[in-house]
Design a protein around this nucleic acid. Structure first.
Lengths: 125, 125
DNA sequence: GTTAGTGCAAACCTTTTGCAGCTAT
DNA sequence: ATAGCTGCAAAAGGTTTGCACTAAC
């Protein structure tokens, strides 16, 4: 565990996670000047393989990273129109996941669950 | 409606949809040599605005396109391990969607619903 | 001395943009 | 003439790779 990794992991943990690589990079570099983007990506990949960090795609333009929290899987609701992101009650996610598994045998990875649609503000327009 | 658009639309419709821009491009160019990637993207955007084509992000590395089928929204279950794709009973999707909307005000776009996880075969390993 | 991690720069892939030419009204 | 599409080439944004250097066991 190097200084870079510690700083990067802290940055991911920061703000409850859900940060883009760019955000992690900016944040980490503030505390560790000279840090390189490649290091950020490589480290995030390493942390992901180690099961410490989740990654998912929020809309095709960048990867997102968050601390893994095995006890509390959650879904992301991404508004296609304004880009706002909300989190969905984990219980809703798990009960849906259980229903799907019962019916199809398919086990949804709740850590990667990203649902697109329209948030309350945008759908009322 | 130009020749390019017809060919691109056909390519999207092909194989039940869910194709990357690259797949659409390769397929369309086979029938219309000289076709340009920029034209594919611009046309897909146009078709999307016209409500003929859906687009969504599948895994962060490329956009996916499919024919819009307003009558039969469906979710896709993509196995992260073997790549197999299953379709999910639309009724499960809509009831989940209704619950989410009741609780959060967020209206999930069922046309863009792609869930990753492990299929029955792979999760029993 | 071997292995793992880092910085740097360059490559890469997907997507977007500027511009000139063409086609059909 | 005008407006809309297209091809081309170049740019843009995000991510990955090759390579040499350093630090740690």
């Amino acid at each position: 565990m190097t200084a870079q990794r510690a700083v990067i992991l802290e940055s991911v943990a920061h703000a409850g996670g859900h940060r883009s690589a760019q955000q992690v990079y900016d944040d980490a570099r503030r505390r560790l000047p000279g840090l390189n983007p490649a290091t950020v990506y490589r480290t995030l990949e390493t942390l992901h393989s180690a099961g410490l960090v989740d990654l998912y795609a929020n809309g095709g333009h960048s990867l997102r990273f968050s601390l893994r929290d095995a006890e509390h899987p959650h879904a992301h609701l991404v508004c296609s129109s304004c880009g706002r992101e909300l989190e969905l009650d984990p219980r809703l996610v798990s009960s849906f996941g259980e229903t799907v598994e019962r019916r199809t045998g398919f086990r949804i990875d709740a850590h990667h669950l990203t649902l697109r649609g329209a948030c309350s503000r945008c759908s009322s327009d």
